[in-house]
C-alpha cells in the first residue's frame, strides 16, 4: 500500500513530537496554563454549595469549605496568588471550559452533562445518600478544568493524590464515602 504518501500530516506530528519530547513538560497544555499559574495568578471560579464551597452573597469574604481549602493548598504548592471569581454554576462551567478561569469549584458531582461541558478531574471523593425510595445514590465529586490543558490536568491530579481535600473536617463520618 502507498502508505508513506498518505500520511504526511502524521509524519509531521511525529517529528514535532520527537523534537518536543526533549525539553518540554509532557503532557503539555494548549494554552500554557501550568506555566502561567506557577508563581503567577490562579483564577478560581467559585459557586456556593456547602460544605464544598461556602461563599457569602456579596463575595466580600474569602470562600471556605472543602474545595476552597484545597484550592489554597494548590496555590501554595504552585506559589500562586488566588483570584476568586463568584459565578453561578452554569456560567462558571462555561468560563472554565473556555479557559477564562483555571479551575472551577462548586461541589460538582460528575454527570454526563457536566463531563461534556468542561474537562473534569477524577473523583477525589464519593459521598452517598439515601433517596426517599430507599435506593442509595453515589455522588463522585470532581473539579472542573479547561479543555485541552492536559499538563495542567496532571498537575492538579498529582496534588489531589498527594494532598487530598480534607473532607473529614467538614463532613460527618456517616457522610464520608469510600475514597
Amino acid at each position: 500500500m502507498e502508505a508513506e504518501g498518505r500520511y504526511p500530516l502524521l509524519v509531521v506530528i511525529l517529528t514535532l513530537a520527537l523534537l518536543h519530547l526533549g525539553g518540554c513538560r509532557y503532557p503539555n497544555d494548549v494554552a500554557d496554563t501550568t506555566e502561567r499559574v506557577t508563581a503567577g495568578t490562579l483564577r478560581v471560579g467559585v459557586a456556593h454549595n456547602p460544605p464544598w464551597v461556602i461563599t457569602d452573597h456579596e463575595g466580600t469574604k474569602e470562600p471556605a469549605g472543602i474545595e476552597a481549602d484545597w484550592v489554597r493548598d494548590l496555590a501554595e504548592a504552585l506559589s500562586a496568588k488566588i483570584e476568586w471569581h463568584h459565578q453561578p454554576q452554569l456560567e462558571l462551567l462555561e468560563s472554565v471550559a473556555k479557559g477564562n478561569l483555571d479551575i472551577g469549584i462548586a461541589g460538582l458531582v460528575k454527570t454526563a452533562q457536566i463531563s461534556k461541558m468542561a474537562a473534569l478531574t477524577r473523583p477525589y471523593t464519593q459521598t452517598s445518600h439515601h433517596r426517599s425510595d430507599g435506593n442509595i445514590v453515589n455522588e463522585p465529586h470532581v473539579l472542573a478544568l479547561p479543555h485541552g490543558e492536559n499538563g495542567w490536568m496532571m498537575t492538579v491530579e498529582r496534588l489531589l493524590e498527594a494532598r487530598p481535600p480534607r473532607t473529614d473536617v467538614w463532613l460527618a463520618p456517616s457522610e464520608q464515602g469510600a475514597q
Binding site: 500530516l9 506530528i13 503532557p27
Partner: peptide, 28 residues
C-alpha cells in the same frame, strides 16, 4: 494497524498541546 499507529500519533500530539492532532488523525 495503520489506524492504531495514526491514533498513537494523534494522542502524542494532544500531549504536546496540539489540540487538533487527535481529530486530524481521526480524519485521516
Amino acid at each position: 494497524w495503520m489506524t492504531a499507529v495514526a491514533s498513537v500519533i494523534g494522542i502524542l500530539g494532544v500531549g504536546m498541546g496540539l489540540w487538533w492532532a487527535d481529530a486530524a488523525a481521526a480524519l485521516i
